Amino acid sequence: MYLLLALAIVSEVTATVARKLSEGFTRWLPSIFVVVGYAAAFEFLASVLKAGMPIGVAYAVWAAVGVALVALIGALFLGESMTWLQVGGLLLVIAGVVALELGSAH
Rank of each mutant, 00 (worst) to 15 (best):
M1R: 07
Y2W: 15
L3A: 06
L3T: 04
L5S: 02
L5G: 02
A6L: 06
A8P: 02
I9P: 01
E12P: 04
V13F: 00
V13R: 00
T16N: 05
A18F: 00
R19S: 15
R19T: 13
K20S: 12
K20P: 00
L21I: 03
S22T: 00
S22Y: 00
E23T: 04
E23P: 04
F25C: 03
R27Q: 06
L29W: 06
P30T: 00
S31P: 03
S31A: 09
I32C: 09
I32G: 09
I32H: 03
F33C: 10
V36N: 04
V36P: 01
Y38M: 13
A39K: 09
A40M: 14
A40F: 10
A40D: 00
A41M: 02
E43S: 07
L45N: 13
A46I: 11
L49V: 08
K50A: 10
K50N: 14
G52V: 09
G52C: 04
G52W: 14
M53T: 02
G56V: 01
V57M: 01
V57I: 07
Y59N: 01
Y59P: 09
V61G: 07
V61L: 15
W62G: 09
A63V: 04
V65N: 02
V65H: 02
A68G: 06
V70E: 02
A71N: 13
L72Q: 15
I73T: 09
I73V: 13
G74Q: 09
L76R: 15
F77D: 05
L78N: 08
G79D: 06
E80A: 07
S81R: 14
T83D: 11
Q86R: 11
V87G: 05
L90G: 14
L90S: 03
L92W: 14
L92M: 08
V93E: 07
V93N: 03
G96E: 05
G96S: 09
V97R: 02
L100P: 00
L102R: 15
S104F: 08
A105L: 11
H106N: 06
